[in-house]
């Protein structure tokens, strides 16, 4: 019948209810979480470099760890933060933690205390949490002069002059490594301010979306290592032999990616065939 809608297979695929796609994606993510497949996880050059930078720290040395993210990206970045702090505490490296995001304080407290408790670390001597300071650029610059003056009190309002760890360490000059785990462009800012002005060695953990912007800084050596997205977290967890949420999520990640690739292929083939049919018909 003239003008009747085309009901071919590819036409139906082009008009599939998007809720069906949501359901299939949900299943592709949920099933591997419930029934792990243990797919292999390779190691990338940048994750190896991140691990090596951490591994180069000696017991008793101090690193700065900046929780530069908020709850919206916890799923990607929490595994990196936890793995890095576990690695640091396992090596008896002391940690000065801070956050450049107001919403990052709760995350920092939870992860710091979890990692510290696992390794029997004591607040004030083995690690300290400085809390949130407004204006990240000013914070990064001023920390190069004096951490105690940048943060007159820690997150719990204890004067930083009274904290034993900060009596020995007061600027980048006393810190061999700075780690930022970030969902924004803060890795670049740490490179510009701490790296560029004070020659501070910097490594970063970034969300997958930020990873493409971070790569150029790794390629030039301005960043000594970096982890990109959940995959980066999983690689690092494997490097330190402590599987966490990163490794546990990789099966689901792989299955969802495979499915999306299949969807893209079907969508493109269906689109091309539909267009060819239209030309022949028209």
């Amino acid at each position: 019948m003239a003008g009747a809608p085309d009901r071919g297979l590819f036409h139906r695929l082009m008009n599939i209810d998007r809720r069906v796609i949501f359901l299939i994606i949900a299943l592709s993510v949920a099933l591997p979480i419930l029934l792990p497949l243990n797919l292999p996880i390779g190691a990338s050059r940048e994750a190896d470099a991140y691990y090596e930078a951490m591994e180069a720290l000696r017991p008793g040395e101090t690193m700065i760890f900046s929780f530069d993210y908020e709850p919206d990206t916890m799923a990607e970045l929490d595994p990196m933060s936890l793995a890095t702090l576990r690695h640091a505490f396992r090596k008896d490296v002391r940690v000065i933690a801070l956050t450049n995001y107001a919403g990052g304080a709760g995350i920092a407290e939870r992860i710091l205390h979890e990692a510290a408790e696992e390794h029997g670390k004591e607040y004030g001597t083995d690690y300290v949490f400085l809390g949130y300071n407004p204006d990240w650029s000013a914070t990064m610059l001023r920390m190069g002069e004096s951490i105690r003056r940048t943060f007159p009190t820690d997150h719990y309002r204890t004067p930083t002059d009274e904290i034993p760890l900060l009596a020995e360490v007061d600027s980048y000059a006393n810190v061999p490594l700075l780690v930022t785990v970030t969902a924004s462009a803060l890795a670049e800012y740490w490179v510009i301010w701490a790296g560029g002005k004070f020659d501070q060695k910097v490594i970063a953990g970034a969300t997958a979306i930020q990873a493409v912007l971070v790569y150029p800084y790794f390629q030039t050596g301005q960043l000594s290592g970096f982890l990109g997205g959940l995959k980066g977290a999983a690689e690092y967890e494997r490097s330190i032999d402590v599987d966490g949420a990163g490794v546990r999520g990789m099966d689901a990640q792989s299955m969802a990616h495979l499915l999306i690739v299949v969807f893209i292929l079907i969508g493109n083939v269906a689109f091309l065939l539909h267009r060819m049919q239209g030309r022949r018909g028209g």
Binding site: I33, M74, L230, Q253, A256
Partner: peptide
């Protein structure tokens, strides 16, 4: 990858 990771986080 980033968006799927967020879904994985909620499902975990």
């Amino acid at each position: 990858m980033g968006r799927v990771s967020l879904l994985i986080g909620r499902f975990q």
